[in-house]
Design a protein around this nucleic acid. Structure first.
Lengths: 348, 348
DNA sequence: CTGTTAGCGCATTCAT
DNA sequence: ATGAATGCGCTAACAG
């Protein structure tokens, strides 16, 4: 390794105590700041600890205090800015609360539930995003430790926290309708997640309100390849539409680009909108109209909730599950048909 | 919480043993699969465990086996696809190796070193990315636990792992020169990180090789706002250049967009290239010429290295530090002046 | 194949 | 202000 010291013989609280000529209790006290220690002794202990390169063993502490001081975050994947921001908010707030974070990405894992069980054994509470786990499984997990469902079903037996979907989808759809579009299509699979389901619900509501037929959703994935495939099909005349409401920006961008490459005029021929407000949404021409979600706040709030549970700050126990929803913001740019004057690409 | 069960009285190995009518050793055995247990007993134990909702206490196990089975990953931030991919690769491989991962994001933390010390107490080894820590601090940390520096200085006393920078930068610069560009500028601060420093080195080398003067780097940040600011200055005639080598894509895209908004023809008037191959790089017009790094592999390899150290697979101890470099790939698109025929935007 | 036993390193009473 | 003693839940010999 570093060639120098071998990480072999780790110093323990005992060796430090011995070196400082005090008892382990005193060492523990100076490190936890739990009780007052004489200035002199404190310094001797610190010196000894430094000298021995002492690093407390977390596991021992956890066992003693019966707390891991660690939160778990389960994510389906890590692509795009969405999950990163969520993690950022989650970790940041957790850290402020004195908690560490263990992340588990389920995608590509042979046995996700095994990974989660293992996670359960090392954290105090856990936030789960994604429907890789069926609802029963989640409910069961919630039995053993505080469990928060992120962007999941906004009801049901377990606590949940999510960004608003339905209302913004409806708003976005109405906006498209107001542009004179009449043949809209929703791209994305509502069964793939509660958030997408919510968006389709809003989409449907807007259409119904105008007395329009609600088309079946085009059940495709959210990747670029899915968008390209759809565009190809669309160009072949498989679908008829003058406006495409895509379940996320990645999909929207792929569709947009592919369509343009083949001579389709966006938004003149067909409008395209998405979700997430990724960076590319601002740089593409026409700039993509989309919905921005307070993802970071969502992550931070998740940490807060979990922390509150751990400290019994909330009326845990028999209280009914909480279901919080954070407001989102429709970002109107050009791909919907609007003409924005100053290209506002220099946002955050 | 869920209203139903209270996460109060957790079952222990003792309660399970009692319920199953066996000793704790047997319970431990069926859970660790460490030794053979009679089919009958095994089932009884499992049943009891399930009944009691037993989840082993990680901390207790860690203390007993003196291993956390956890890796630490320290990242400066989480913006853009770079860090996400790195984390993805790291977590994924770690998981395969039976290890969990704790992430720590230093950006925005009042006292990063405190967070790291705390991290050190709960993991077996740690990978650090970013120069928030001075080299001495890292060296010191490497004294207590296996420590791997990611995208850091490719020499020095601690193990490192990074993507190739200099050669690809040189290659990219030569490509620009071959396009007939003669007045190149490097955007980014070499002092902000070893990777950027390496890129500037390659940039310089290419220029020197052609007998050209090497301009000072334009020391700006990597955010969109930095790019916009530079573009403004450039438009005001502050800098003269017919090619801009940006330290990353975010910067390149911001510059590109801002320049175009003000009538500059890219790449005719000025070429722009970047690093990372973010999604937007494929969608922008002209498509951005950039350098793709094997970030996910880098993360996975980091886990491997750390795991190897923990198992003494490598000649740890007195061996000199290892410094591995992963090859990168220059992705030629249009912003450099090339005319690519089939818009290859449907890559991975 | 299964039970007994002895720590793992630390926080915490309870004394002093 | 400090020390001695106890236990947290689990694993790993060691017996049987």
């Amino acid at each position: 390794m570093t060639g120098s010291a071998a990480h072999s013989q780790r110093a323990t609280i005992y060796s430090v105590a011995a070196a400082a000529g005090v008892s382990i209790a005193t060492v523990s006290r100076v490190f936890q700041g739990t009780s007052i220690v004489a200035q002199g002794t404190r310094e001797r202990v610190l010196a000894a600890a430094d000298e021995l390169n002492y690093v407390p063993l977390g596991a021992a502490r956890s066992l003693a205090v019966s707390r891991h001081e660690l939160l778990g975050l389960v994510l389906p994947e890590l692509g795009g800015p969405y999950y990163s921001e969520l993690l950022m908010g989650f970790e940041s707030r957790a850290s402020e609360l004195g908690l560490g974070v263990i992340v588990v990405v389920t995608q590509g894992k042979p046995d996700p539930s095994r990974a989660i069980r293992q996670l359960m054994s090392r954290v105090d509470a856990i936030a789960v995003l994604g429907s890789d786990l069926d609802d029963d499984a989640l409910t069961h997990l919630a039995t053993v430790k505080p469990l928060l469902s992120l962007a999941g079903i906004p009801d049901g037996p377990i606590d949940s926290l999510a960004a608003e979907n339905t209302a913004s989808a409806e708003q976005l759809t109405i906006h498209l309708l107001d542009h004179g579009r009449s043949s809209l299509l929703f791209l994305g699979d509502p069964d793939a997640g509660a958030d997408i389901a919510g968006r389709y619900t809003g989409f449907s509501a807007a259409l119904s309100a105008r007395g329009l037929d609600v088309p079946e959703p085009v059940r495709i994935g959210l990747r670029e390849s899915d968008g390209a495939a759809f565009a190809t099909a669309h160009l072949a005349g498989e679908h008829r539409a003058d406006a495409l409401v895509c379940a996320n920006d990645e999909l929207a961008l792929a569709v947009l680009a592919h369509l343009q490459d083949h001579g389709v005029d966006v938004p003149a021929d067909v409008a395209v909108v998405g979700w997430d407000d990724v960076m590319a949404a601002r740089y593409v021409r026409p700039a993509l109209t989309t919905v921005r979600q307070p993802v970071r706040d969502l992550g931070a709030l998740a940490s807060d909730r979990l922390h509150a549970h751990l400290n019994g700050t909330t009326d845990a126990g028999a209280a009914s599950p909480t279901h919080d929803i954070l407001p989102t913001q429709v970002v109107i740019r050009s791909s919907c048909g609007c003409t924005t004057s100053p290209p506002e690409r220099h946002l955050p």
